[in-house]
Simulated assay, not measured.
Amino acid sequence: MKTVAGAVARRYEVMVQAAATLGLRQGEAFGLAVDFVWKPTLIKADIPTTHENGFHMLRHHFASVLLERGVSIKAVADFLGHADPGFTLRTYTHLMPSSEDRMRQVIEDVWATGQSALDVP
């Protein structure tokens, strides 16, 4: 099934590959994606090209969902093109409200099985 998100993601990947061919960094490819993919898509859908509808907000949402679902900071940083995973952590840590709950649940799940710390990889 085709989705808007899938179409945008495929178009973004094409932009990243084209940018790499031209010797551009992923962040520079992001700028091309905003100008040549995201904004024209908003205009075609008759959605105002405001900050609230910007690609940057979508990027924040994307990163926060990945982190919320347990994807590592390193993997998210690599995908977003951040050279320093610490930057990604500082930027998105406030978007991970359930981290303490997930931590507690992990410990509860392990203890519920009767495993010791030595049994856990």
Score class of each variant (00 low, 15 high):
A18D: 13
R11S: 14
P97G: 12
Q26N: 09
D109P: 09
M96Q: 12
I43V: 15
E13K: 13
A117C: 10
A5P: 08
R59Q: 12
T113R: 14
G70Q: 10
V4M: 11
G81C: 07
T3M: 07
M103Q: 13
K44H: 14
L80N: 01
A117W: 07
E52G: 07
G6M: 02
L24W: 06
L42N: 07
Y12Q: 09
S64V: 08
E13P: 03
T21F: 11
T91C: 06
F79S: 01
V106R: 15
N53C: 07
L67E: 04
A77C: 08
T3D: 10
T113S: 14
V76L: 00
H94N: 15
V110E: 04
V71R: 04
I43D: 11
V76T: 01
P40I: 00
H94I: 12
D101V: 09
L24G: 01
E68M: 06
T88Q: 02
Q26R: 11
E52M: 05
E28N: 04
A77I: 01
P85I: 00
L95V: 02
H51W: 08
F87H: 15
V34N: 09
G23N: 06
S64W: 03
L32Y: 07
S116T: 15
A9M: 09
L118W: 10
A112F: 05
M96F: 07
G81H: 02
R104S: 10
P40D: 03
F87P: 01
V8D: 02
G23V: 03
H94G: 15
F36S: 15
V71K: 01
L32F: 08
H82Y: 13
S98N: 14
D119V: 08
A5Y: 12
G114Y: 05
Q26L: 03
A77R: 00
M103K: 14
E13A: 13
V110C: 09
Y12W: 12
E108V: 11
L95W: 02
V34G: 02
V71C: 03
A112D: 13
F36V: 04
F36R: 15
P97V: 11
M103C: 13
E100K: 14
H82W: 05
R25L: 04
E13G: 10
K74W: 02
D35A: 15
S64G: 12
K2H: 12
T49N: 12
V16G: 05
H61V: 09
V71N: 02
Y92R: 02
F55H: 05
D78Q: 02
S72P: 06
G54N: 10
E52N: 09
E68L: 09
H82A: 02
G54W: 02
Y12K: 06
D109W: 05
S72L: 03
R59A: 05
E68F: 09
E68G: 08
R104V: 08
R59T: 10
D46W: 04
A5D: 13
R69Q: 14
A20Q: 14
D109L: 04
